[in-house]
Design a protein around this nucleic acid. Structure first.
Lengths: 351, 351
DNA sequence: CTATTGATTGCATTCGGATGCACTGATATG
DNA sequence: CATATCAGTGCATCCGAATGCAATCAATAG
């Protein structure tokens, strides 16, 4: 039986006059045939940690090289039930551009590959979850918000999940994040102690968890320091949104002397609006602070005072946590919270 | 035999006291058993275009829903030899941040999924190629430069490849790109006809194909218009690199009156350097133009004159071309070149 | 010299869905 | 009424690598 099969394989591969020319895949049987060993031997040879004699290894490797053989990950996945695939979910407005790049490096080091999903519409999340399940990914890293139901689906199916930059209090949702409230508190402290008293806050969308945490941090600190309640407007995390928000905040009679933005991009918008449209000097007339560590915020024209999120540490932690969970599924749910790093730029008057 | 097998499956799944709780996967056999039909029927039911009666379809679908069945893409891939996976290769400095997002949308529409590779080190490219081959991706879109050997490997293995934003003249390399030379020519024309005569060019790295094409376009047009040879410096496509290049160009006695940058980010760096360090007015003292359509370039402070690459069209074309090639592998190699769109901002004096 | 141990190796089976083939009815045609 | 046609269906097999088990063989121990 096995012999027949091997023969068939050989026949097929030797009929190289195949016009389609895509050439039948080289399989472990082909290598086995050429090396004069069994298919099992070839398989073991390509599976780290299996016992193979040196003689056999070199024989097989020579044959494999000659044929250009690479194990078929698909077939391997089917039997081992390990795909070495990690699904990464990002929403279009989320995150840092180099997030994907950093993540990718960590994956490479661990021999994992990235199945990438972006969410533009709400329906996309369900589709993504369906797809990643069909591909039997080993785990999921999400930089986008998911509904409780969606998290539940992953939980039921036993797919390890780690949120990055979103701290959830949903059962089974591991997460890695930045302490938004703490960082926002630092900014407020700095601003208050430098004498600012009329605060304007440009928050993100009401639905954004991240925005809510940052807002809460700011409000709590202001209250703790006995400051007057700030003027709060909600925007959309974009540059244009920041400009518009600034226009709104400075329209009234008592213009704020400090603007606290939920992210750097909006802060940049605020600065541009202040300088270009409102003829205000930053930071002399108004201080502006952001949150994130978005690279353009550090350009010469802005030099934003902000809290930089430790993206590299967060990504590393997320991958570590995910891998740990894959290897030990019963692990307890865990949150890892990193402090941000205060960046004192010249966009705010803080002595 | 089949019955035995089905029975085994059922036994396993009914022993739900399983502590590991990851719960055996639900297979088409389970669904077939519950619906009282054959496994083939279930398979046909989930394969578009196969003939199944309405009665059977509803029966099967009900059973599938009840068990939460989703076909296992891995097993399907193994037999159909179609993974519905597209590898996307980007180098860390390449491209537009929203490139991935746009691409993802097109993929979703076609039922394809994205296997994502970023190249940070040179060795990464070979690793990526090895991996994507192991996963038997249906095709590759590369926004990074690959060596002729690497392209050759893909060709030999019959994996369709489309470059995006890199036009190659290598056999078998399909590509989609922007007409860099043309766009650069437009910019030069505008600048010359507005009276600029002393040109400084900030090119990208010498090795960058894109940079070379843009440089060539500028030089050719300048020569065609009978202008004096410009001063050319090579930089690295970064903000800091742009600033440094500007410092270099303006160090001599005869300062250029127009700076042509190989991308927008460097142009932004040039503008900041001019304004903040050299106390030059842009565009009064010096005009600066870029290339790309990088969003921050359009912020109020910069309003860059540039050529916007039609990213959306390019991505769509790349996906179309790739899909066509997957379906008809013998298709001739093709290049699709899009014209950019001239954006006349206020960073250059062009009347 | 024989028994024991442990490292290699091959065989047969398995993963889960797709599909060629043969078979069943039912409808359409002459 | 006999026959051609065809949509539906089940059976058996296949895709390509991993692995439990048994067999083999060499080396060490007694």
């Amino acid at each position: 039986m096995t012999k027949t099969r091997t023969a068939v394989h050989h026949d097929a591969s030797s009929s190289s006059g195949d016009p389609q020319a895509i050439g039948r895949m080289v399989t472990s049987y082909d290598v086995a045939k050429l090396a004069g060993v069994s298919q099992s031997a070839v398989s073991r040879c390509f599976t780290p940690g299996k016992s193979v004699s040196e003689r056999m290894r070199t024989k097989i490797m020579r044959a494999a090289d000659e044929l250009g053989y690479q194990p078929n990950a698909i077939a391997r996945m089917l039997i081992t039930k390990r795909s070495n695939l990690i699904a990464v979910i990002v929403s279009n407005l989320s995150v840092n551009p180099d997030f994907a790049s950093i993540l990718s490096q960590h994956m490479i080091e661990r021999g994992l590959n990235l199945l990438f999903f972006t969410l533009d519409q709400d329906a996309d999340a369900d589709r993504a979850i369906q797809q990643l399940w069909q591909y039997r990914v080993d785990g999921v890293i999400s930089a986008a918000e998911l509904s409780v139901e969606q998290i539940g689906v992953l939980r039921e199916r036993g797919i390890p999940l780690v949120f990055i930059n979103r701290l959830y209090d949903v059962m089974g949702a591991n997460s890695v994040g930045c302490d938004h409230a703490e960082g926002e508190g630092w900014l407020i402290e700095k601003l208050v102690s430098a004498g600012h008293s009329r605060f304007g806050i440009v928050a993100g969308p009401e639905a954004s968890v991240v925005s809510r945490m940052r807002l809460r941090g700011a409000l709590d600190k202001l209250a703790a320091l006995g400051c007057a309640a700030p003027q709060v407007v909600h925007s959309d995390f974009t540059y244009a949104g920041g400009r518009e928000a600034m226009r709104g905040l400075c329209g009234g009679k008592k213009r704020p002397d400090a603007i606290v933005c939920a992210n750097d991009l909006m802060a940049i918008g605020c600065i541009d609006e202040a300088r270009l449209a409102l003829s205000l000097k930053v930071p002399d007339d108004v201080s502006v602070v952001g949150f994130d560590g978005y690279a353009p915020g550090q350009w010469g024209g802005y030099q934003l005072t902000t809290v930089r999120q430790p993206v590299a540490s967060m990504v590393k932690a997320a991958v570590d946590m995910l891998v740990a969970r894959i290897e030990e599924p019963s692990m307890a749910t865990e949150k890892r919270v990193f402090s941000g790093e205060l960046v004192e730029g010249s966009s705010a008057r803080i002595d």
